[in-house]
Simulated assay, not measured.
Amino acid sequence: MIRVRGISKTYQMGNTLVKALDGVDLHIPQNEFVAIMGPSGSGKSTLMNILGCLDQPDNGSYQLAGEEVASIDDDQLASLRNRSIGFVFQTFNLQARRTALENVMLPLRFSNCPKVEARERATQILSKVGLAERAHHRPSELSGGQRQRVAIARALINQPEIILADEPTGNLDSKTTEEIMNLFHHLHQQGQTIVVVTHEDEIAQHAQRVVTLRDGKIKEDKFND
Rank of each mutant, 00 (worst) to 15 (best):
R109C: 02
T91R: 15
S111E: 08
S127E: 00
G86E: 03
R134C: 12
S84L: 11
Q90L: 15
A122N: 02
Q95T: 09
A118H: 09
V104I: 01
R134D: 10
I125W: 01
R121C: 02
L108G: 06
S127Y: 00
K115P: 04
A100T: 10
L131I: 04
S127R: 00
R121G: 03
L131D: 06
R97E: 14
H136A: 08
D75I: 10
I125H: 00
N112P: 06
E102R: 14
P114T: 02
S127Q: 01
V116E: 12
A132R: 07
Q95V: 14
E120D: 05
L126G: 05
C113A: 06
E102P: 10
A135D: 07
Q76V: 04
L80Y: 12
E120A: 09
L101D: 06
A118R: 06
Q76A: 15
E117W: 05
R98C: 01
R134K: 14
D75A: 14
R134M: 10
G130M: 02
L80K: 13
R134I: 07
Q95C: 07
R98W: 09
N112I: 02
L94C: 09
H136G: 09
P114A: 05
F92M: 12
L108K: 03
P114D: 08
D74S: 14
F92W: 09
L101E: 08
S84H: 14
F89S: 11
T91Y: 15
R81K: 09
Q90F: 15
F92D: 12
L101G: 07
A122V: 00
K115W: 11
A122Q: 01
K115E: 12
N112R: 14
Q76R: 15
Q90T: 14
L77T: 10
T123K: 03
R97M: 11
S79A: 13
C113Y: 03
G130D: 02
A100E: 06
E120W: 05
N82I: 07
H137S: 15
R97Q: 12
V104A: 02
A96D: 13
A118M: 05
F89H: 11
F110T: 02
F110P: 05
S79T: 12
G86I: 01
H137G: 12
R119E: 09
S84V: 14
S84D: 14
L94V: 09
M105N: 07
R81D: 03
R121E: 03
A96W: 06
F87G: 04
D73C: 10
S111A: 09
A78T: 11
V88E: 07
Q76Y: 08
R81G: 06
Q124T: 00
V104P: 01
L106S: 08
M105L: 04
S79Q: 14
H136M: 13
N103R: 05
P114E: 04
I85D: 07
D74Q: 13
A118Q: 09
Q95L: 13
M105V: 02
S127W: 00
Q90Y: 15
R97P: 01
V116R: 11
V129D: 00
L106Y: 13
L101H: 07
P107W: 04
R109N: 10
S111K: 09
F92R: 11
